[in-house]
Design a protein around this nucleic acid. Structure first.
Length: 424
RNA sequence: GGAGGGGUGGCAGAGCGGUUGAAUGCACCGGUCUUGAAAACCGGAAGGCUCGAAAGGGUCUCGUGAGUUCGAAUCUCACCCCCUCCGCCA
């Protein structure tokens, strides 16, 4: 959520920044300003009436204690109360309208974000390693998975329909090994605190991290309980401290969580549907940070580095992309994607998206910290995958496939996996 | 699922219709004292919105929402959450 004061004071700046995202959200600013002006007018009027009422009511109390008559005053106050009731209703409606408008306005891209219309304007920041060479055409993870019996997509479909995964045997073990490997890395070497949160969350949490109200059709919902299946651990973990005021000395808070992620992927049917690249349920290790305004951009850089470390230790080729304004997520001010090389798809696959939301989410969830000057400030929140598992799995088996049909397990992963290769 | 108890400031805990946005204690911040610290003493300190150039003022908030009343932390209703006991259960 943007600061209404900023919108009030610099509407042109806000409009211009939002316009760089594309879309027509900039148009909502005018409506918002109108509602805000009206709201303040009505509130001021209302408060004047309330002040009168309070003053007279106190007078009644004083007179009664002196056993004096108060009939006239009571009549007067009753009349004020009737006037106030109408204004109160209007003020509440305007306040509600204002909040709803604010919830649908995206964050402002950071000044350093390259301006562009869509993903074609994204910038490659750096590459690590190089594409592995194969004598023939490398098999993709679907073929490898079938041959080695580590992936059973047909039966997953039987259970849940298309877009679901079933790892089997060494495949299931490989996934579990990767989860443990990543969580150990982030907790032991990178200083994150492990969290194992609920996977079902209330609407407030989804609003807090800005999945709602705008993207409700993309979310799985338990109708009977008004609970949502978290599309990412970002939701429960970032909301851990919602409605709290943290001590500045406790920041940054750094969390890492393994959770399944549930996404309806409405409207993306037919896109990247091959294998396990885009699915309705997948596992992910997610990192979340809560920090201060002054530190959030350096925390973003170290967050990306923490995610990159996973791929470096596994020896997988990847590149880091800086998203342009048009490709930026709704709540993000700046985002880096990490894309791992998939020999089987002959393409880079997004395995991590690391974003700084600045105070956008914090305003929505009322997450603050008490600064050194004892002032309450909205925190800055960040998150990034560290990493998403199915795509990592695909890149790994495709990259380390051997001419004999086996898959070599990277050395760092062997203690977790319990063997140095997967064979038929 | 059944029965009962309860949600007040960072925490603990009073208040149960009228200058109470809220006693008191602890924790916190500043000061006095001290070589320094501790103790003691003095003082400060909730959040949001709004008016104002500022100083400062107003208003709302005692789980949430609605109601009764001239006036609600205090009374009524609904909902949410927590605790205890019973039942069921991984």
């Amino acid at each position: 959520m943007l600061d209404i004061r900023l919108i009030r004071e610099k509407p042109d700046f806000v409009r211009e920044r939002i316009a760089t995202r594309g879309g027509d959200d900039a148009g909502k600013i005018d409506e918002l300003l109108k509602v805000d002006g009206e709201r303040r007018k009505v509130e001021t009027e209302l408060q004047q009436l309330q002040a009168d009422r309070n003053r007279l009511s106190k007078e009644i109390g004083a007179k009664k204690s002196r056993k004096e008559a108060t009939d006239d005053l009571e009549k007067q106050v009753r009349k004020i109360g009737e006037q106030a009731a109408g204004l109160d209703e209007r003020a509440a409606k305007l306040d509600n309208d204002q909040r709803n408008l604010l919830l649908e306005i995206p964050n402002l891209p950071h000044a350093t974000v390259p301006v562009g219309k869509d993903a074609t304007a994204n910038k490659v920041v750096r590459e690590w390693g190089s594409k592995p060479q194969f004598s023939g055409k490398p098999a993709d993870h679907v073929a490898l998975g079938e041959k080695l019996k580590i992936l059973d997509l047909e039966r997953a479909t039987k259970l849940s329909g298309s877009g679901f995964i079933c790892f089997t045997g060494a495949g299931a073990r490989l996934e579990r090994a990767l989860i443990n490997f990543m969580i150990d890395l982030h907790t032991r070497d990178h200083g994150y605190t492990e969290v194992s949160p609920p996977f079902l969350v209330r609407r407030d949490c989804m609003v807090g991290t800005s999945q709602l109200p705008k993207f409700e059709e993309d979310m799985y919902k338990i109708e009977a309980e008004e609970l949502f299946l978290a599309p990412t651990a970002e939701v429960p973990v970032t909301n851990l401290h919602r409605e709290e005021i943290l001590a500045v000395n406790d920041l940054p808070k750094k969390f890492v969580a393994y959770t399944p992620c549930f996404r309806r992927e409405a409207g993306s049917a037919g896109r990247e549907t091959r294998g396990i690249i885009r699915v309705h349920q997948f596992d992910k290790v997610e990192m979340v940070k809560v920090t201060t305004a002054g530190k959030s951009y350096e925390e973003l850089e170290s967050l990306v580095a923490d995610a990159e470390k996973v791929l470096q230790l596994l020896g997988l080729h990847y590149r880091v992309i800086e998203l342009c304004t048009g490709d930026l997520g709704f709540g993000s001010a700046k985002t880096y994607d990490i894309e791992v090389w998939s020999p089987g798809q002959n393409a880079y696959l997004e395995v991590s998206s690391c974003s700084n939301f600045e105070d956008y989410q914090a305003r929505r969830m009322n997450l603050r910290y008490k600064d050194a000057d004892a002032k309450n400030k909205f925190a800055h929140t960040l998150n990034g995958s560290g990493l998403a598992l199915p795509r990592l799995f695909a890149a790994l088996v495709e990259t380390f496939q051997q001419s004999d049909g086996s898959i070599r397990i990277p050395e760092k992963l062997q203690p977790y996996f319990g063997a140095d290769k997967i064979t038929h």
